[in-house]
Simulated scan of single mutants.
Amino acid sequence: MAEKRTDRALDRTELIKQTTLELAQELGFTKLSIEAVAARAGVGKHTIYRRWPSKGALFLDALLPADAQALDIPNTGDIEADLRTQTYAAVDLLGRPPFGPLYQALLGEAQHDPSVAAALNERFIGPQAQRVRARLKLAQRQGQVAPELDLDLAFAILSGPLYFQFLIAQEIVTHGYIDRVFSALFAGMRPSP
């Protein structure tokens, strides 16, 4: 009996998350409400609030499932090519609806809701930053980047122009733009001859 109740709860949770994404696409995040999600999903508001403390927390869980695979970084032995491949995959994901506009809304909500910001950092941004730093550290040991390179700063310099283009300029981040960023960045990261 407990297993059946657990299955029903999981099904309801997935229904609520799917409904949240559908409504966010239709209405936009700012017009999304717990009431609208509850009505469309056919559940009570208390069912949603038992699982998520806020609209932002619900939206984050709906958009970034806990088991979502991170954007992996290949290891071909060429740090620039490997990071470029990973970055292409990231911007390709952000460039297609519905993920790009919804992720943009999630980042906006994170500016106003500290719990959403913390969860976003813990579940997505932090792990991605760790992967990039680990790959850069390996490249340092292999002599592909300068041994004195500040890995935290390198990650910030890598991601900053992409987020600027995506969030501030609100322009499509193209592979050509990534190529220009990487050319400038790696010119300064290479070890001195």
Score class of each variant (00 low, 15 high):
Ile172Asn: 05
Thr13Gly: 04
His46Tyr: 11
Val116Trp: 01
Phe164Ile: 01
Ile168Arg: 11
Arg131Lys: 15
Gly95Cys: 06
Pro97Tyr: 07
Ala36Pro: 07
Arg40Ile: 04
Leu167Lys: 03
Ala184Leu: 14
Ala169Asn: 12
Asp11His: 15
Ala117Ile: 06
Ala187Ile: 02
Ala89Met: 02
Arg190Leu: 09
Gly95Gln: 03
Gln128Phe: 10
Leu15Asn: 06
Asp179Ser: 11
Leu94Phe: 15
Pro147Ser: 11
Ile168Leu: 10
Ala110Tyr: 03
Gly28Tyr: 06
Ala118Met: 15
Leu32Glu: 06
Val132Cys: 08
Gly126Lys: 05
Ile157Arg: 13
Asp179His: 02
Val132Asn: 03
Gly28Pro: 09
Glu171Arg: 15
Lys45Trp: 05
Asp67Met: 03
Ala66Glu: 14
Arg135Asn: 00
Ile79Met: 04
Arg180Ser: 11
His46Val: 14
Ala146Gly: 11
Arg123Lys: 14
Ser115Trp: 05
Ala9Tyr: 08
Met1Lys: 08
Thr30Ile: 08
Arg51Thr: 07
Asp67Cys: 01
Leu71Trp: 09
Glu109Tyr: 02
Ala38Met: 09
Asp179Gln: 12
Leu32His: 02
Pro193Val: 07
Gly108Tyr: 07
Glu26Asp: 12
Phe29Cys: 03
His112Thr: 12
Asp92Val: 04
Gly28Met: 07
Gly44Lys: 13
Gly100Trp: 10
Arg8Asn: 08
Ala169Thr: 15
Ala2Pro: 13
Ala156Gln: 15
Arg51Gln: 13
Ala57Lys: 14
Ala117Thr: 01
Thr20Cys: 13
Val181His: 08
Ala9Leu: 15
Arg51Ser: 10
Arg141Glu: 15
Lys137Asp: 15
Ile34Gly: 02
Leu94Lys: 00
Arg190Pro: 03
Tyr49Ile: 08
Ala134Ser: 15
Asp67Arg: 00
Val181Trp: 00
Asp150Ile: 01
Leu167Cys: 08
Ala134His: 14
